[in-house]
């Protein structure tokens, strides 16, 4: 049984169709990337999976439950974690408190009290290597540290699926490689399925994902294993092709 299943999901804003009849599945422990140029509907798709928006048509199942009309927090209780494109840690809370909030209210939340959640948070602080900042307000961290706090906060929720919105935007190649290793590591150790949304960093896609879904103008273009997807003529046509042409023209 798939962990996440989207069936004919559509979302319109006014006259514009942001997501157009998209269906796909994700298995437990899978690493998948949703790729597409700006405006392809990736963020809307994320928001639909996550419950920030409700779809106009179609159904979404998560962990065997029909979550189509569920608010975000109920999806989180079922084990869906998320990070944002621009990291949004709770600025006045300390790093430890931020992560503890994830542990307190996420999928693990039912049983944990504040003290237990703080202990869980300490484990994740070690994992992301921010022990020195444990008691500092998250608002004062660097963007990359904020991103790490946000990922740790999502992991502390004990999710079965982690949605990462542009996890590597604005990073240099070295940081990207580290992040890819880190994401693979959490998948391998904790068995979490990860869906990463990537706009244009193909280096990250190739290293990270086992499967790629390419979106174009709101619809699903291809959904294939990474190697095939990146060599698919349709993908090259709408997405990579343009970059390749530009590259060739310059070269």
């Amino acid at each position: 049984m798939p962990l996440l299943k989207c069936e004919h999901v559509s979302k319109r804003f006014g006259g514009m169709v942001a997501v157009d009849d998209v269906s796909f599945e994700i298995m437990s422990g899978e690493l998948m990337a949703i790729v597409g140029p700006n405006g392809a509907g990736k963020t809307t798709m994320f928001n639909l999976i996550n419950g920030v928006f409700l779809p106009d048509e179609g159904h979404i199942w998560f962990a065997g439950v029909d979550v189509t009309r569920f608010p975000s927090y109920k999806r989180a209780h079922l084990g869906m974690g998320r990070t944002f494109q621009i990291p949004r840690p709770f600025a006045s809370a300390t790093v430890q408190e931020n992560i503890a909030i994830g542990a307190m209210f996420g999928a693990a939340g039912g049983e944990l009290n504040v003290e237990e959640a703080m202990e869980v948070a300490d484990e994740y602080i070690d994992l992301i290597g921010l022990k020195a900042h444990r008691n500092k307000p998250a608002g004062g961290l660097t963007p990359i540290e904020k991103k790490l706090v946000e990922i740790a906060r999502a992991l502390a929720m004990k999710p079965r699926l982690l949605l990462m919105d542009e996890a590597m935007a604005g990073m240099n190649p070295k940081d990207i490689d580290q992040m890819v290793t880190f994401i693979r590591h959490i998948r391998d150790v904790e068995g979490i399925a990860v869906v990463a949304m990537v706009e244009h960093i193909m280096r990250a896609v190739a290293g990270l994902a086992e499967r790629v879904m390419v979106m174009h103008q709101g619809a699903k273009l291809v959904d294939e294993p990474t190697r095939e997807a990146l060599n698919d003529p349709r993908v090259i046509e709408v997405y990579l092709g343009r970059q390749a042409e530009e590259f060739n023209a310059k070269g």
Binding site: N50, P71, Y73, R88, S92, A100, I101, G102, F105, M157
Partner: peptide, 20 residues
């Protein structure tokens, strides 16, 4: 902690599983 989270960022709080 739930109130702290929703005061700082209500959308992020919901995503963390908080019934704001």
């Amino acid at each position: 902690y739930a109130l702290l989270a929703l005061r700082e960022d209500e959308d992020a709080a919901k995503v963390m599983g908080i019934d704001v």
